[in-house]
Design a protein around this nucleic acid. Structure first.
Lengths: 204, 204
DNA sequence: AATATATTTAATCAAATGATTAAAATACTT
DNA sequence: AAGTATTTTAATCATTTGATTAAATATATT
């Protein structure tokens, strides 16, 4: 009944299940994932999943929390920094975000599509948007372009960065863009996005 | 055994089921949707779903085909048109696409997230990308900016347009942007996107 | 070693779910 | 109206699936 409190360094079973859960949930989403998939993927007995995490739902919540943080938390420090110029933020944003997404290509679709159904899974929900609203990035945007809602720029930056990864399934299935070609496109994009962002800021 | 071949104008039951299927599938996705949900939503007996469509899978496929076409087919005529300038295409694209998405806000997340799992559901897959590759839009982009892969511009345009709708669940759940405010932002975006696109094309 | 505690396993439950069937109701044809 | 085909319904199946239980094994504690 009393869970594994002692076994702190135990990354063995519990962590194996979590790792498998990350993999399967991210690939198939909550509803299409069977607890048996996770058990099989991690090579453990099905009952252990419930022994360690009580339920599919609870395990999912842990994964979701991690991934939400990864998807949106990554950019926060960059946008908050009040020692960098707006232009520099564009550059840091692009390189950080595109690189992170390249290593976690199914992160956006996972988080955003799961959020659609269960908004209650939204972690640190109030924090995020308020944080961004009060960021140095937003302040700088307002100074440069007081005529445009900063959210418009933010959505564009995020969209230009995230959207290609959301489209990747389409590219793959159509054989239009090979994985290698996609990777190259994303590397090229790291330079393009800040260039474009600067042009957008100036556009009248 | 012989299905309804005679009743062609019958939009009654069959169409009622399809309409309910559109609604439920789009809101919850394939896996989270139960055939009983669709039956209840359309007010019909569960067995009728299988009577008319054989299986959940088949019914889904019909809906998916429609929605895929709507998400990507909408822009094809605009991009193919060789009587309009590149700048005009930006404008037509933005107004057409944003307006369509405003009326179908959960279209992108539905199509793209379902496509992730079942790429086989991709309809007219070869056609789409080849069509775009040979479009007047791509030709014009190549002329103006031979140094940049046209796909980079296309992804940005699509991303800037589609991404806000994919983010909508986040906005709603965080109470950061009310539905009315979102609608206003999107209307504003209809003018912003072509302006930005023009600036991006010129950016060196 | 003996005992207690924690972990793992195999078997099983109960509910949910996609699908089918046989009968009833309705519509159509002659 | 009678007969035939189509549509609809209620009941039921067979699987799947999340979860539990009780026993077995391993690990720690004394």
């Amino acid at each position: 009944m009393a869970k594994a409190k002692i076994t702190v360094a135990d990354t063995s079973t519990e962590e194996k299940i979590k790792e498998a859960a990350r993999k399967v949930f991210l690939r198939k989403g909550y509803s299409a994932t069977r607890t048996r998939d996770i058990a099989e993927e991690s090579g453990i007995n099905l009952a252990l999943l419930n022994y360690y995490f009580r339920s599919k739902e609870k395990l999912f919540h842990i994964v979701m929390e991690e991934k939400f943080q990864k998807l949106f938390g990554t950019i926060v420090p960059i946008l908050m920094d009040d020692t960098t110029t707006l232009e520099k933020k564009f550059e840091l944003f692009a390189i950080t975000y595109i690189r992170m997404l390249s290593e976690n290509p199914d992160l956006p679709l996972f988080v955003l599509s799961e959020l659609r159904n269960n908004a209650e899974h939204m972690v640190s929900k109030n924090d995020l948007m308020k944080l961004l609203q009060s960021s140095n990035f937003v302040k700088q945007l307002k100074e440069k372009r007081p005529d445009i809602n900063p959210l418009q720029f933010l959505m564009s930056l995020l969209g230009m960065s995230i959207f290609p990864f959301i489209m990747q399934p389409v590219f793959s299935a159509t054989n239009a863009v090979s994985p290698q070609a996609f990777k190259a496109l994303m590397e090229e994009r790291i330079a393009l996005i800040p260039k474009w962002a600067k042009a957008m800021i100036k556009a009248k």
